[in-house]
């Protein structure tokens, strides 16, 4: 039989309310509180219950996660359930924090349930499956049943439906599916336009997601003492592309030494070229400085406008490259830039 583990807070474990919210993590090889209900509903044995105070998780997150992951290190389990957390904000946060950590560490599915008003929903819906739940423990049976039904589907290895089919909160994960009615796009577009023209309600197949905001970086205090690096998504590489960076959907990046180089030599001279397949390469191949403006930046260095140019430029290809890969490569580059004392970056894109 497959095995499951349930995470609950101090209140549902019957330890106490607000006064016990600092309760430190504990694991019990038994069914505590709602674990009994879950055990009845699930096609798996709930072998352990993990209990942690909501405030403890809130104020000692790192410590709490470490302890709980430690508990689980030697235990075999197929699925992890957290909550239901109803409308309790700190409990929702705790279920999300531990759920995400367990999923990342042990690569097991994690299912939870929270009321739409629970702030944990927006914080963690991308990381774990969260079902919309009731406001209070009065809905324990309904919410746990929904969790268990979906968990059973996972345990049976069934093909899982979309967020709207299954009922969990959308996670921002979009995949291609074939419509059962096979209705062609032309008919869907026509129908949507007729509705829009008549002022009737319609459902866009691509809801516009909220745009990401990045915190504004402080300005460089004194450029004349600063080290500036050049980074590009324009695919400029040495002609033999030593790091075999892909020309589309890149997962690799490279950094190439430009110490003492006044300007980037071109493809014909056997120096640099672009491998980016998303734009006409002719202009970049003849003069790579059009994409990585080393020559111009060198002039400013000589004038003393900037302290110096960092010894390497960093490069990858930005066409078809996924956000996740781009973010990973960016973080990897930043590590080098930080370690080597770079103060600011000029990032050129194509």
């Amino acid at each position: 039989m497959k095995k499951a583990i349930l995470y609950i807070n101090q209140f549902f474990a019957g330890i106490g309310g607000e006064d016990k919210a600092d309760y430190t993590p504990e694991i019990r090889a038994e069914l505590v509180g709602p674990a009994m209900l879950l055990n009845q509903l699930l096609d798996a044995e709930v072998t352990h219950t993990i209990i942690c105070g909501d405030n403890y998780m809130g104020s000692n997150e790192e410590e709490a996660v470490k302890t709980i992951l430690g508990f689980l290190a030697d235990i075999e389990f197929d699925i992890f359930i957290a909550g239901p957390a109803f409308q309790a904000g700190r409990y929702g946060n705790a279920c999300g924090v531990i759920g995400k950590a367990v999923k990342e560490k042990f690569n097991v599915p994690v299912v939870s349930s929270m009321n739409p008003e629970n702030p944990g929903v927006d914080m963690f819906k991308k990381d774990i499956y969260i079902f919309p739940g009731g406001k209070s423990a009065a809905k324990m049976r309904t919410d746990m049943k929904q969790i268990a039904e979906f968990a059973n589907k996972i345990l049976r290895g069934e093909r899982l439906g979309s967020a709207s089919d299954e009922g969990y909160y959308v996670r921002g994960i979009r995949h291609m599916v074939w419509r059962e009615d096979e209705q062609p796009a032309s008919e869907r577009a026509m129908a949507m336009l007729l509705k829009k023209l008549k002022g009737e309600e319609f459902v866009s197949e691509l809801p516009i997601p909220k745009i990401d905001r990045v915190p504004v970086a402080a300005p460089v205090a004194d450029l004349s003492k600063a080290t500036i690096a050049l980074v590009t998504s324009g695919g400029i590489v040495p002609v033999d592309n030593p790091d075999r960076i892909q020309s589309a959907s890149a997962t690799r990046w490279g950094r190439y030494n430009i110490e003492g180089v006044d300007k980037l030599g071109n493809r014909e001279e056997g120096q640099f070229k672009t491998i980016h397949a998303g734009y006409d390469p002719a202009a970049a191949d003849t003069n790579p400085n059009r994409v990585v403006p080393l020559d111009a930046l060198r002039a400013y260095e000589k004038e003393g406008r900037i302290g110096k140019i960092h010894e390497y430029f960093y490069t990858t290809v930005g066409t078809g490259t996924t956000e996740a890969e781009a973010a990973r490569m960016g973080k990897e580059m930043v590590e080098y830039l930080h370690n080597e004392g770079v103060d600011a970056v000029i990032l050129t894109s194509t």
Binding site: R174, L206, I211
Partner: peptide
Amino acid sequence: ECTGRDGQSQPLVTLDEKANAIVSTGN
């Protein structure tokens, strides 16, 4: 759309709230 192999990338490289009616044909 181009949402990536993991389905998590932004579906179009530019977005605008006025583009409120779209039929999407694949990733």
